[in-house]
Design a binder for these strands. Structure first.
Lengths: 233, 233
DNA sequence: CAATCCCATATCCTATAGGATTTTATATTG
DNA sequence: CAATATAAAATCCTATAGGATATGGGATTG
């Protein structure tokens, strides 16, 4: 297909061959669709015709169906018999509340565990993740918020990583995928408060204070919820 | 609209038309594979050749790939490029610990909420779910444990339902899917303790005591963990 | 003018076929 | 006897084609 029967240089082998090994077409298609969902190029609730993807990505239906099935298993798309695939509907108010309830049960505890397991290297990594945020003053509002959202996700994910429970980390990341789409739809202003709250978390981590980390995380999540809940009006 | 131009009795509509609407081939294939994974007919870690399923289920590759993709998205199977699909590997000791940590963060709190929202109807439903267990004295050990596992899952799921947070409920159910396979592999004895612990939970629910329900659930999960952790020796 | 029926198009669903790669078995050789 | 190389089988991966169904527009009729 890509490489026929001709000889190829060692460089070709080092690139195409390895790339070919590590990624099937179905995986590439998955990444493409996933990216379109995350960037809102495919809006929540809108239909996803298979044939469109066939023409757009220049691949046959089979890998596309395989990728869509995987996305269905992850809950990002839904399939209706004899109707087809469509992007998962936008998050509801009820679901929003449930998500924050879940976060409040998991993240403060994990923050406390992370504080206990804190060391210089990890602290530096957290400082970096928190420090990059909010430095883009002159740029476009939308891009700026998109950047903040990504950095905020990295910051929280790092804390989960240091807490040590991979299962909880995966669970939150999975939910975050859905949440990200919601957050981008109603991108609220990047308040300075969020950055202050991150600072409070960093202080608790620097002190290795589990109780303070628990409290700081709890308040951060509650404030985040109160800031975003306005989108439902 | 769904029924074309011919008249059909109401019974026909209730059976063929509706059934046909609600199940695509891919969905049926999914159910079949899911069942084989749950019943350990496909062992954890073993390969799942697509062609085998083609012959076994008498359907073509496409719906099978779609179903396998969905199972991959749910984490029950893994796919390796140019190798194929295989069942997800058995749960590790580390994962086991993480799962119980997650349960301890979520289920006691939900039990407390369920206790607050308790009423006669719900209490009766819980009593029934708990009461059916352990009554199979003469039957085969393996079948008896399988029955207990299913009933135990229903009992816990009902509590989550009454707690009101669908997201938490779905999260735990999703994890339970993986856990079920582990539990069936090393099916330990059905101790009478588990039933006693369920009784303690019911008592707390009957009293509407949130604090007692939290405590009873926490102890129940911790004991469950201690009973099952022996399987790793 | 509104409602209904019908037809054409678009889309989905399934099946089959061929090319590419990995794995396994066998034979050969040091 | 062990190790390697070759060949064959199994499996995966992709593409194409045909049948079935839903959706939308237009014509007809009350």
């Amino acid at each position: 297909m890509h490489n026929s029967n001709r000889r190829m240089s060692s460089e070709d082998v080092a690139t195409s061959a390895l790339i070919q090994r590590s990624s099937s077409l179905a995986a590439s298609v998955y990444d493409a669709i996933f990216g379109q969902l995350m960037s809102l190029k495919i809006a929540p609730g809108s239909r996803i015709p298979v044939d469109n993807l066939v023409r757009q990505l220049s691949v046959s239906q089979t890998p596309i169906r395989e990728a869509l099935g995987r996305l269905e298993g992850e809950g990002l798309v839904v399939k209706t018999h004899l109707i087809g695939y469509s992007a998962a509907p936008q998050i509801t108010r009820r679901r929003f509340d449930e998500l924050y309830e879940l976060r409040l049960l998991l993240e403060p505890d994990s923050a406390a565990r992370a504080a206990i397991a804190m060391d210089e290297t990890r602290l530096a990594a957290l400082r970096e993740a928190a420090g990059v945020m909010g430095r883009r003053e002159g740029t476009d509002e939308r891009i700026r918020y998109s950047t903040f959202a990504r950095q905020d996700a990295v910051f929280h994910d790092r804390i989960m990583e240091f807490a040590g429970n991979k299962l909880i980390r995966e669970t939150l990341n999975h939910q975050h995928t859905h949440f990200h789409i919601f957050r981008l739809m109603f991108h609220s202003r990047v308040t300075e408060e969020a950055l202050d709250e991150h600072e409070a978390l960093l202080a608790a981590f620097a002190a290795g204070d589990a109780c303070a980390a628990d409290k700081a995380m709890r308040e951060h999540i509650e404030h985040s919820r109160d800031r975003l809940v306005l989108a439902f009006d």
